[in-house]
């Protein structure tokens, strides 16, 4: 049987649903982080893998989501659902504005522009002390449902909804339009697609998905700091997508989970875990450019994007 995107999603989420029963609270929390990283990376991949635009600034959506929820709950006294709604609004506006500006370019220039806009947000978070707590960030974000395991299931549920929605979009005519722009923007333009508007739409959908993941991250950590907006996290998101495989829908999600565990293992083994992570990343990129899931998928006879 050839692997399918839906069945892969069902299988992975079924495994994740039973995981807390086997893992202790530490690993449950780590898995929750991995699920959010993975969801952010799938969001990134809507733009990268399906529309052909490499963003190096996705931390801006992740961080904007995390900050808005933290500000909503801690500074404005909003409920979690209201903060989440506010966060989607903020992320959407940021996506439309930065997308409009960045999409004047493509390829490496687009990557640099998104990176620079991410740094603009980082600079704001670092300086706007009354709102963001500057370099210390915001502490004491309440965790909905209190308990880590219960919150884990909330994260799992929301992530599943986000991924199903994205898959649905990507399988629709809109998703096909994104792919046609990826494969040949000139032809797409000639056929009559409004290429720039569709790119902006993909950019916004991509940003919103990553933003939702970031929004759920602040209550998981019960805090947020500027690291969430720093460009190295954008690079980490790109890495997760490539690590898992950007040519399979579920690839970046698995990439996010793997990334968390590579980092945790490296931290457990050595004080110089960045070095260990860097060597692992470099080796994987050179040896398995199609990603781990991409490799398995191809071996199983699945279709790569």
């Amino acid at each position: 049987m050839k692997p399918s995107d839906y069945w892969a999603l069902v299988l992975v989420f079924a495994l994740l649903a039973v995981a807390p029963a086997l893992a202790g609270p530490f690993y449950t929390r780590l898995l929750a982080t991995g699920i959010l990283y993975g969801t952010a990376a799938v969001g990134f991949n809507v733009l990268f893998g399906y529309t052909g635009l490499l963003s190096f600034g996705h931390a801006m959506f992740w961080g904007a989501g995390a900050y808005t929820v933290a500000i909503g709950m801690v500074k404005m006294g909003l409920s979690f659902p209201a903060s989440l709604a506010l966060s989607l609004l903020v992320v959407g506006v940021i996506a439309l504005v930065t997308g409009f500006l960045s999409l004047r370019h493509t390829r490496i220039y687009f990557a640099m522009l998104t990176l620079a806009f991410g740094q603009l947000l980082y600079a704001i978070a670092l300086k706007w002390r009354s709102m963001t707590g500057a370099d210390e960030g915001i502490y004491g974000v309440p965790r909905p449902l209190g308990d880590v395991v219960l919150y884990y299931y909330l994260i799992l549920g929301v992530s599943l909804v986000v991924l199903l929605a994205l898959l649905r979009i990507l399988k629709s005519p809109l998703g096909l339009a994104f792919r046609s722009i990826r494969d040949n923007p000139f032809r797409a333009e000639v056929v009559g697609y409004p290429v720039n508007r569709l790119r902006l739409l993909s950019y916004t959908i991509s940003g919103l998905a990553t933003g939702v993941a970031g929004s759920l991250y602040a209550p998981l950590q019960t805090s947020v700091n500027p690291e969430a907006l720093y460009w190295t996290f954008s690079a980490a998101i790109v890495f997760m997508a490539i690590l898992g495989g950007s040519r399979v829908f579920i690839g970046p999600f698995i990439g996010g989970l793997l990334y968390v565990f590579i980092q945790d293992t490296a931290m457990g083994v050595t004080e110089y875990w960045l070095l260990a992570t860097g060597v692992t990343l470099g080796a994987l990129i050179l040896l398995l450019p199609e990603g781990i899931v991409g490799y398995i998928w191809r071996r199983l006879g699945g279709r790569l994007e």
Partner: peptide, 20 residues
Amino acid sequence: KPEEVQLLLTFALILVLDDL
């Protein structure tokens, strides 16, 4: 090679050099 491969390889290098 694709840009993302080049960028990620040099990103991995940052992690290594920072720790060195």
